[in-house]
């Protein structure tokens, strides 16, 4: 089990290998379908991104509302493949660490290797457990999107596994081809 801190430098990112089990701590950002659309729109209009992409991890989640006294509700990953078309545009802009669930398409995997990016996964459907690893949550962009807004999360020991690494390693093997 590797303990890593976010944001992450390039050397650490490149050293990750498919199958590595990680415990992530530090600051990560959330975004799913609607936020990705806006991030790509912002990129095309040469507007500032909602957060600095350099070394940052984007976590594909749309949490349930926080109960009083809690930073966040259930916050497990959503299916990553839906973000493939957006990731193709955002990886060259610097967003090269992604966390979600499930296999992704070939176009995404090819681009991931070209960009020396990494794709991490966490078990889906364990949102209650994962909510206990989040210390704080704050909206940083697109508040009108509600659960789909971009949140800045401070996490501790957030579990993840490297699914696709920067040199073409693929934990899913042949299953998704």
């Amino acid at each position: 089990m590797l303990r890593l801190t976010l944001p992450m430098n390039e050397a650490t990112r490149l050293s990750l290998r498919a199958g590595d089990r990680l415990l992530l701590s530090g600051v990560i950002y959330t975004g799913r379908d609607a936020a990705h659309q806006r991030m790509v729109d912002a990129l095309q209009k040469h507007e500032n991104p909602p957060f600095s992409y350099d070394g940052s991890l984007i976590y594909y989640t749309g949490p349930s509302p926080a109960k009083p006294g809690r930073p966040i509700g259930a916050c497990g990953p959503t299916s990553s493949y839906r973000m493939d078309p957006f990731a193709l545009a955002l990886m060259p802009a610097g967003l090269r660490i992604m966390l979600g669930k499930g296999p992704r398409g070939k176009a995404f995997r090819d681009a991931l290797v070209k960009q020396a990016a990494v794709y991490l996964v966490v078990t889906g459907g364990i949102g209650a457990l994962l909510s206990k690893r989040v210390l704080s949550a704050a909206t940083v962009a697109y508040p009108d999107l509600g659960a789909e807004a971009v949140y800045r999360l401070e996490v501790v020991d957030f579990p993840a596994v490297v699914a696709y690494d920067a040199v073409g390693g693929n934990l899913y093997g042949d299953l998704d081809d």
Binding site: S64, K67, R70, A74, G76, T78, G127, A128, L129, A147
Partner: peptide, 15 residues
């Protein structure tokens, strides 16, 4: 996860 969800009344999944 399902034990935490029941004991702390957090949804099992955010979806």
């Amino acid at each position: 996860n399902q034990e935490i969800a029941r004991n702390e009344r957090i949804p099992i999944c955010q979806d």
